[in-house]
């Protein structure tokens, strides 16, 4: 156990994280063990975010450090290579190309132990359905920043239901104009106000 690495990750001390990872590699510590330490540090980052000690930029920085450390390990742990919780599929609904919110969520989910399948922006219903069939996620996320895309989300969710894929699948929505009334209108399960809420909801549902 490397308390030093866990704390450095939690404190977002980039230089210390990288030097400690290198030191552990030279001591022949298993890559998966090192990833587990980093993920424990990420868990503390998430807790500090919930306690409003950390904010979005700290989440982004933690993901950046995590990915850099993963590179030192030959990519192990990067982009969900060690999926602790399973697969999370996400995209921005069709006719909407906003990707900032989506990218933040997918980055934070990846570095919190989820195998993330990022469908991109302007994603058509068929692509969501194909991804659900292929990856069998328990949770998917649909992002949208335009009220004009509300009907598109609604259509997408109805099509997922019609395809018989809604059972045991939770559909999360998020984005600037999205609220509880929107959630009800489009038939989603939950509105996530930020990336960390997506992490927490998905962890609970996918089994922590």
């Amino acid at each position: 156990m490397s308390k030093k690495l866990i704390e450095a990750m939690a404190d977002l001390d980039e230089d210390l994280v990288l030097s400690e990872v290198k030191a552990l590699i030279s001591q022949n510590v298993l890559a998966l063990d090192i990833i587990a330490y980093l993920q424990e540090g990420m868990g503390i980052v998430g807790k500090r975010f919930e306690e409003k000690e950390y904010f979005l930029s700290e989440l982004i920085m933690s993901a950046e450090i995590f990915n850099e450390a993963s590179q030192l390990l030959g990519g192990v742990g990067g982009a969900g290579a060690t999926s602790k919780y399973g697969t999370f599929v996400m995209g921005t609904i069709y006719d909407d190309i906003h990707d900032i919110g989506k990218n933040i969520v997918t980055t934070v989910m990846s570095s919190n132990g989820f195998n993330v399948v990022d469908l991109g922006v302007d994603v058509c219903t068929e692509k969501y359905i194909d991804a659900i069939k292929e990856y069998k996620p328990k949770v998917i996320g649909i992002s949208c920043l335009l009220t004009t895309a509300f009907d598109n989300i609604k259509e997408c969710i109805q099509s997922i239901e019609k395809a018989g894929l809604r059972k045991d699948l939770k559909i999360l929505i998020g984005g600037g104009p999205v609220d509880e009334a929107t959630c009800k209108y489009v038939g989603a399960d939950h509105v996530c106000k930020n990336a960390q809420e997506t992490v927490e909801y998905s962890k609970k549902y996918m089994g922590e």
Binding site: L12, E14, L56, S57, I60, M61, E64, I100, N103, I104, T107
Partner: peptide, 12 residues
Amino acid sequence: RTMAKFMVDIRR
């Protein structure tokens, strides 16, 4: 820069 990169720049 993109929002995420700028947030990292501020720290680096």
